[in-house]
């Protein structure tokens, strides 16, 4: 084991002795100094997760959340110094984390919160406005094969749990009262998009969720609409497109080149 690997391993093992060869300038015990450093590493990373997932923290309480986050941190050190990107995989970890099994929606709420942070930091792109869509109507013949490029901040999150309602209830002044009206076991889907500079969430139905997910996977418009319709025959295409427009979620509509009339 290299000295670096040994140092890192000691950092992640509470109670372990400090790596051999460490010295202090004034002859004090390097073990104690190393303990301080180790605690700083853990506390700052746990703080980062807590900052990103305040609702998940509220759902289980600070003590539980921080202990859970600490176990995640030990197995998932940051790969970038930018803490906004730290926490990838935290929701998957929660899903398999036995002590949290009694709060089945915890993982999805954490994922929603991480997606919000990602949306906030996603790259800029100029969204399509209604006025930009004139050429779309001029090329109606090519629409079925067209592909919609979504804004980098856009994410879709379907869940078997009422993640949007749970999140929203925690933004209320009286969280307990707001939670009283929430049925956590009801499936919900959320479209996340940065509108202007604000991360915005839209509650969407299952068919719209399939539609936008298909568009995000670069599926042609007709195929994406077809999949959404297969999910729910009542799928409302105009409403879904209006939502994408209003949510500033589209940045381009790309036609198959052979079909352009201009």
């Amino acid at each position: 084991m290299s000295p670096q690997a040994r140092f890192a391993a000691s950092l992640l093992t509470p109670g372990s002795r400090c790596p051999p060869g460490l010295m202090t300038w004034n002859g004090s015990d390097p073990g104690r100094r190393f303990d301080v450093y180790r605690n700083n590493v853990m506390v700052s990373l746990i703080d980062a997760l807590a900052d990103s997932c305040p609702v998940a923290e509220a759902l289980v309480g600070t003590r539980f959340f921080r202990a859970m986050a600490g176990i995640f941190v030990c197995a998932n050190l940051p790969v970038s110094p930018v803490m906004a990107h730290y926490g990838k995989g935290f929701d998957a970890f929660i899903r398999t984390f036995e002590p949290a099994a009694g709060v089945p929606y915890l993982a999805d709420v954490a994922r929603l919160e991480l997606l919000r942070v990602q949306a906030f930091h996603a790259a800029d792109a100029v969204p399509l406005k209604s006025a930009d869509l004139a050429h779309v109507l001029a090329n109606a013949d090519a629409l079925p094969g067209a592909r919609i490029a979504l804004h980098p901040s856009v994410a879709v999150m379907p869940s078997p749990f009422a993640i949007a309602s749970l999140w929203l209830a925690h933004q209320s002044d009286d969280v307990s009262a707001a939670l009283g009206g929430v049925d956590a076991m009801r499936a919900e889907a959320v479209l996340i998009s940065r509108v202007g500079l604000d991360v915005t969430m839209f509650s969407i139905d299952a068919a719209t969720s399939v539609f936008v997910t298909s568009l995000a996977a670069d599926m042609a418009l007709a195929s994406a609409a077809g999949r959404a319709q297969a999910t729910d025959p009542a799928f409302d295409i105009p409403a879904a497109l209006a939502l994408l427009l209003r949510g500033e979620a589209m940045i381009a509509i790309n036609f198959p080149e052979s079909m352009l009339n201009d």
Binding site: V36, N40, E57, L59, G61, R63, R66, G70, D183
Partner: peptide
Amino acid sequence: SCAGTSKMDYQGNSWSFVPKGTCEKTASPT
């Protein structure tokens, strides 16, 4: 550089406690 050292958070190796938060206030039909 020593911010947070007094918190001693990294003691969470015991799972004898259960999550305490708003969970129990959340309705669940099942």
